[in-house]
Simulated assay, not measured.
Amino acid sequence: MDFKPLASFLDRMTSWRIPWAEVLVMHRNDTVFRYRSGFVDLEKQTPIDEGRIINIYSMTKIMTCVAAMQLVEKGAMLLNDPISAYLPEYAEMNVKKKLPDGEVVLEKAERPITVRDLFAMTAGFSYDLGAPSLKEAVERTNGKLPTRAFAEALAKEPLHFEPGTRWNYSLCHDVLAALVEVVDGRRFGAYLRDEITGPLGMNDTAFDLTDEQRSRLAPQYAFNDELGKAVRYDANGFRIGTEFESGGAGLLSTVSDYVKFLNALTNLGTSPEGVRILSPAAVNLMRTDHLTDATRGDYSWEQLNGYGFGLGVRTHISPAGSGALSPVGEFGWSGAAGCMAIIDPASELTVMYAMHMLNSQEPFVQPRLRNIVYSCL
């Protein structure tokens, strides 16, 4: 293995527009390459160092789906169950319908939202965190908005399409976190700590930080196209309540910590130390393509050509379509500030890539990074 091209690529990205980047590559449970480039603090010119905590944003979704799959494994719920069996506020939903004359009307949904719809992003939700019902719930809870209250509020908003008929990247996994709470009985963050992060020894992964961890929180940036540079932007706009444990975008973690979770999935659900978080059957179901003829056309992001969508993860289905060097079945997801997971059971390969910049240039960076990794093996 020769990872010099991968190091050169990270150097190229940090000399371009990304403040810093880090990659950790594991093969057969051993770390075979780790490299950091750039400045964690642009203003102070501080080099990126060990133990920096970052917002992983939508890479939270992978862990949320694993948590929910644990409950499926236990028979606590089924993928085909209507979520109203657990979240009764979703029993009768309205759907926006556009009439031939352009008028938009609300009609009763003909299909129930199922547990599978939450996993697969086919429930009919949007990603509008400024929706009136959510704003009202934030005010009513004095800015706390617990996860369960979030789901109750979102149910008041009309759906954008009949459940199961389209794919739309949305707040599905935030509702899935509330579903875990109701089915299990623990707060979502406590469930993750007890069932996933604690057993795996992930001490730096949580929704809330200690004072010591906060001292290691990396500055966050956003690339400003008008100024032609990255500017400081430290807020997580997806956390709209102090008690909202967002299953879609709320976790903070480090490269060293989160790769433990990713590598357990590479091993089909069991860590090298023997901690089992999922069965191989459940991991394989997660990375099975769940798109249908009706939903596939909506899944059209440039960087996901040749990929399907499983239970909360992209999954490689067509090397001809993707142009990717990874094998069929490689899976993972990414986050708004640029981090990315590559989980590859066939190659026994786990990759955690991290940066901390919104407007992250994902369509450019991530497909290239993936191909360079595989070319180095």
Rank of each mutant, 00 (worst) to 15 (best):
P327E: 06
E136V: 02
R36V: 06
N236Y: 04
A206P: 08
E273F: 06
A264M: 04
E157C: 03
G338Y: 01
M355I: 03
G321E: 03
E181W: 02
W20T: 03
I277Q: 09
Y191M: 12
T147W: 00
V138H: 03
M357Q: 14
V72H: 00
A320M: 12
T46E: 13
L262Q: 14
I372C: 05
N55K: 13
L159F: 11
G312T: 09
T14L: 11
V365Y: 02
L265Y: 07
Y221G: 09
W301Y: 15
Y299I: 09
I372R: 09
L262P: 00
A354G: 00
Q220S: 14
D194T: 15
C376N: 01
Y191V: 10
S126D: 15
F150N: 07
V255S: 13
T31F: 08
S170T: 01
I277Y: 08
S215A: 15
P100H: 07
R186C: 10
G130Q: 05
E50Q: 08
V313T: 10
L358I: 07
Y90I: 12
P132I: 00
Y127E: 04
P100T: 01
T292D: 02
P367I: 06
A149M: 04
A320K: 14
R140E: 15
E273W: 06
K44W: 08
S84A: 15
P47K: 06
S360E: 04
I343K: 07
I240D: 07
P112N: 12
S318G: 12
E362Y: 12
M202A: 14
L42R: 11
I83S: 05
S133R: 05
I343R: 05
L285D: 11
N94A: 14
M355Q: 06
T147C: 04
R296L: 14
E22A: 13
P88K: 14
N359W: 08
Y57T: 02
E92L: 13
Y221D: 08
L369C: 00
E107K: 15
P88N: 13
T210V: 11
H290T: 07
V105K: 15
P367N: 03
R186Y: 09
L311Q: 12
N80L: 09
K96W: 13
L251K: 00
G130W: 01
H27Q: 13
I54C: 03
S170H: 02
A177I: 01
F261C: 00
T141N: 03
T295Q: 05
L145F: 06
G241Y: 01
A123E: 06
P47D: 04
P100Y: 01
R28A: 14
R216V: 12
M93Y: 01
A282D: 07
T122N: 09
N236W: 05
G130C: 09
V138L: 01
S84Q: 11
H316W: 07
D289R: 02
D101V: 03
P319W: 12
G332H: 06
G143C: 03
